[in-house]
Design a protein around this nucleic acid. Sequence first.
RNA 1: CGGAGCAUGGCGCAGCUUGGUAGCGCAUCUGGUUUGGGACCAGAGGGUCGAAGGUUCAAAUCCUUUUGCUCCGACCA
Length: 575
Amino acid sequence: MRWSTAYIPTLKESPADAEVISHKLLVRAGMVRKLTSGLYTYLPLGVKAINNVAKVVREEMDRAGFQELLMPMVQPADLWKETGRWEFYGKELLRFKDRNERDYCLGPTHEEVITDLVRGEVKSYRQLPVRLYQVQSKFRDERRPRFGLMRGREFVMKDAYSFDADDKGADSSYQAMRDAYVRIFTRLGLKFRPVEADSGSIGGNFSHEFMVLADTGEDTIAACTACQYAANVERAAVTWQGTVCTASCPPWQAIDTPSAHTVEEVCAQLGVPATSLIKTMLFDVDGEAVAVLVRGDREVNDVKLKNHMHATQINLASPEQVKAWTQAPVGFAGPVGLAVKYIFADNELQGATDYVTGANKGDTHLLHVSLPRDVQVSAYGDFRTITLADPCPRCGGRIETPKGIEVGHIFKLGTKYSEAMKATYLDVNGKEQTMIMGCYGIGVSRVVASAIEQNNDAGGIIFPPSIAPFSVVLLNLDPKKEEVSAQADALYAALQDTGLSVLLDDRDERPGVKFKDADLIGCPMQLVLGGKGLARGIVECKNRKTGEKGELPLADFASAFAAWQQQVLADWVVE
RNA sequence: CGGAGCAUGGCGCAGCUUGGUAGCGCAUCUGGUUUGGGACCAGAGGGUCGAAGGUUCAAAUCCUUUUGCUCCGACCA
């Protein structure tokens, strides 16, 4: 591609509405433009990057034995009603009616459609497993789209689905996909980590997320520094190491704590540390009032609560609900005499004596509360979020909590959808069996954004070679000089003959503009040809990642370039 | 959905408090001088100031309503 005829509208300044670095650079590098909140046009350079990611994804899907298909984006409501998700999916599902008043939605995912396809076609164990994938635009009406391509409403996704005859087959499908994901993100040059994850409203038995490590990530990972354990913090198990407290304590008594709504305020007024408080959090779990008790310095993990109760909907209680359930404003809830359906307490409060709690009365707390003596606890369990002080649940090692961007998520679904939609087959005995499913997603457009989050500098984007819109950008510094242009054209042709994608900057611009733009769009290899270099018989080269510069002799360009290219690629090998 | 902020040429912003002929930088176009890290000089074009209504002799500016966008939170496969 010649830059003079390309549509690459680069900008000197960042758009005012961009906050994160990938969003700013994607816009500045002329890769995307926003249409409206959460919706982006991919410009030619952006499409190239997305296609490059998709190419790697397709190759590895094919290698893993999955075949590509393409399903409609518009889906009929009937299928979603069959699985119950028409009701449960919520407002993220964009719904609309056609001219005949029939209900439809834009596909946020395709379990229903693909299960409908397979149940109609596959009737025998001989036809299993079925492994299919597609690369397609998805639409999710996010409550709060943000961060450019990181959380858009419409985005490019690879979604794959497996149907197996039994658990063993399903596990091997899952493992094949897990291996494929590792290869994909390695080939894409990303620093990533597979982590245990909650399966959320997709449902199913177990799942892993693939996290690109970046400080701007929205997810937090609990990763062991000693062993391979890594999990999303919302899932990471907390190992209870404490002992049951058996000390006796005096009867509880009320104490005035005027306008002390928060743990900090209570601690300040009573002069006690947060560790001697019990925090009482109220939740609306499928319409039931539920209280969860954790120590004052801990965080309730609502995902763990949701899983513990096998709930479908869980929300922190509203101020009105708190008032109705505790007869007190928010901030004074306590477990003593609390009339809710369940009171759960975290493991470390087993036998807890002599704690401070809310009194279920405004501006009042209780001293000397003993859980075993004063409270009917429904169950103790793991209800809090892991902290840096907690040990690795697998090996007891030290935990660290880096931030990550979720770029892939794989689920072993089990029979959640196949059962609801009656996707069955006849086994070897002629007996009807339910298929075991798995589903596997990669946010293709999000991968591009996260690659930029992970690889950038003051000059702009530093694309991994497998994602870069062009492998090489060749700067012709003197396009008006015939001999320089002739040589540039010759290099351009020679490079293309080696199969590389090359962008030739033949614009009538000053050298500074070309240098800046070349750095901005982030091609891993830069070649610079000017009158000076030509006179000396050399073309300059620059490794975008390391900034290292060198010279390649024009006389022996092909082999010199090949050697340099190997060096550049070597710098991208992820350890 | 709760809280906050913003909306003025293609992009980035000033002007608004205290109403009085809409400005700057970048970009664009013309001419000239330049030419190895976002050049300089001279000139030119381009804006119903998000929309609607109101106050006023007069509104980008004050008031009301509304739409959109961004951030924080909630929420989220």
